[in-house]
Computed example of a mutant assay.
Amino acid sequence: MSDNRKQVVLITGSTRGIGLAMAKLFAENGYLVILNGRHENPEALAGIQALSPESFFLQGDVSREEEAEKLFDSIRERKLNLDVLICNSGISRDSLVLRLSGQELDAVLDTNLKSAFYCARQAARLMLRRREGSILFTSSVVGLTGHEGQAAYAASKAGLIGLAKSLARELAARNIRVNALAPGWIDTEMTRGISREKMPFVPMQRPGRPEEVAEAALFLAGSKSSYITGQVLQIAGGMVM
């Protein structure tokens, strides 16, 4: 980025798991971090503020368009320049297609895909004024391969990849980059309840750590990846080759 002020990153779904790991790493690297979630995690926020005192939490359900708009209104009111947006909000409702209800499908698409659309559109409006910025979507390897019992989740994550590539084409001339992360089997609360027998084969023979996904996000967000846009970076131990 072109100035010497502290860089600002907004990470949705950042009160636990991969999002919180991202928040910690960005705070350690000098960013002002805006955490977001449906519910505040005071302990997590305190840990981030110990690393980056100016960081703060904005509550909001970004799967609702009006709440996503309010989130960005709060950023404007604080007169902050947004350098990086990471759309990380996500849920899963695993079920075979024949058993998947329309309500479950809507919940997954709203949280995983539509929230990213709402937030990216708002972030682009802020970034276009300065003609620079980076937007990241947390997709998944199942968005590339599909997976039995995860039709809604895989569809939402594949949608994020399409959204990233389309938005990257629209914003590239304005020096705004858009990329997607595709984690595989990562050791988080979401995956700990799944038996190892049901886990996909990983050539590296271990789950990934949230911190390893965070390192990839830090790279794609910053100046070291200044000529990379419209790409999908797998953090999956070789699951998809």
Rank of each mutant, 00 (worst) to 15 (best):
S2N: 15
R5W: 01
K6Y: 00
R16A: 11
L20W: 00
K24I: 15
L25S: 03
L25K: 14
H39Q: 09
L45A: 07
L51K: 14
F56G: 09
G60F: 09
D61L: 12
S63G: 12
E65V: 09
A68H: 08
E69L: 13
K70C: 08
F72W: 04
D73A: 13
I75N: 05
I75R: 10
R76A: 12
L82N: 03
G90P: 00
D94S: 12
V97N: 08
V97S: 14
G102R: 12
G102N: 13
Q103E: 15
E104V: 00
L105I: 13
D106Q: 11
A107G: 08
V108R: 05
S115D: 11
A116Y: 00
A116S: 14
Y118F: 15
M127N: 04
L128C: 02
L128S: 08
R130C: 05
E132F: 13
E132Q: 15
S134N: 11
S134C: 12
T145G: 02
T145H: 05
G149F: 07
K157E: 08
E170P: 01
L171D: 02
L171V: 06
L171T: 04
A172Q: 02
R174L: 08
N175P: 10
N175C: 11
N179Q: 12
A180H: 00
A180S: 09
A182L: 07
D187F: 11
M190R: 08
T191D: 05
I194G: 15
R196W: 14
E197Q: 07
K198A: 04
P203G: 01
R209V: 10
P210C: 06
P210D: 02
E212D: 03
V213E: 03
V213D: 04
E215N: 09
A216E: 06
G222E: 08
G222K: 05
S225M: 03
G230L: 15
Q234K: 15
